[in-house]
Simulated scan of single mutants.
Amino acid sequence: MTARVGVVTFPGSLDDRDAARAVRISGAEPVSLWHGDADLKGVDAVVLPGGFSYGDYLRCGAIARFAPIMSELVPAARSGALPVLGICNGFQILCESHLLPGALTRNSSRHFICRDQTLRIEATTTAWTNGYAPGQEVVIPLKSGEGSYVAEAATLDELERDGRIVARYVGTAPNGSQRGIAGITNEHGNVVGLMPHPEHAVEALTGPSVDGLGFFTSLLSHLASGSPVGAGAR
């Protein structure tokens, strides 16, 4: 049976169609979810796409966390039952919803960044990264103005200790993210937030690589296995 992956559209989302295409290319069925509907439509997983939800008013993701769709998503994700991938603005929404710790702040350069970025995958037992090898380097696009990950030192130490840092920037973090963090996961390993855009690296014709496809095929492997996920690579 084909896996059904919901892609949420908020006012201001601009990568929802790209995310849906990546889901389709991976072999799953994309399902459109509207921010104003408190209905997940029985999907097997959810992608929160990039963009500028609600115009990034107040803070990036600060209004989206109160969208009706989130009233269904948050408890399902918090229980560990629902795999959720938040990309860029989706990562910001996950932090604002307290599904992931920390926050995404203005890039240290104070400039919007748009570049192909090399990442090192570190946590490989999550629902979204089990198809990668520990330490594997991938190239996917980065495009954000508020992509600098920050958290208290105790939180950063906990993420390190528990293997919950999913990916780091190779070399100096272009946005000033603490400890080079590009993505993290929750304690269950079902919720992943990633600042770069894997959905833009799923076809050789249009992306710098096809390295991003592994996030989506990893999900299918996880769903097919029916096994619980871990927090991260130990």
Rank of each mutant, 00 (worst) to 15 (best):
A62D: 05
T172F: 02
L82A: 04
V31D: 03
N89A: 14
V43S: 01
A76D: 07
I113F: 06
S108L: 14
F66G: 05
A154R: 11
G86T: 06
S53I: 00
V43R: 05
G226R: 07
G61D: 08
E122D: 13
E72K: 12
R4K: 15
D39K: 09
L205V: 12
G102N: 05
V46R: 05
A20Y: 05
V5Y: 04
C114R: 15
P11Y: 09
E199R: 00
I165L: 12
E158F: 07
R110C: 09
L100F: 05
G145C: 12
H98W: 13
N89I: 01
S97E: 08
T118L: 15
P68L: 13
G90N: 01
L223N: 02
R179V: 02
M195A: 08
T217G: 09
A103T: 15
E137K: 15
E146W: 09
G102V: 03
T129D: 06
D162P: 00
P30N: 09
V170H: 10
F52H: 08
G147Y: 11
R179E: 03
S221F: 07
D18A: 15
R21L: 12
V166L: 11
V46W: 11
E72F: 00
F216K: 06
G214M: 06
T185S: 15
R161M: 12
H111G: 08
I25R: 14
L156M: 10
G42N: 05
R164A: 08
H111M: 14
V5R: 01
L219V: 01
S227E: 13
G86R: 01
G171V: 08
R4D: 00
G180H: 04
L73A: 04
G102Q: 03
A231Y: 09
S144V: 13
Y132W: 15
D44S: 09
I69H: 00
S148K: 13
P11L: 15
T105K: 12
L73T: 11
Y132H: 13
F112I: 09
A62K: 09
P198D: 10
C95T: 15
G171A: 13
G61L: 12
W34S: 12
L194G: 01
G51Y: 04
N107Y: 12
Y57F: 14
A173F: 07
L40I: 08
T9R: 14
Y149I: 07
T125C: 11
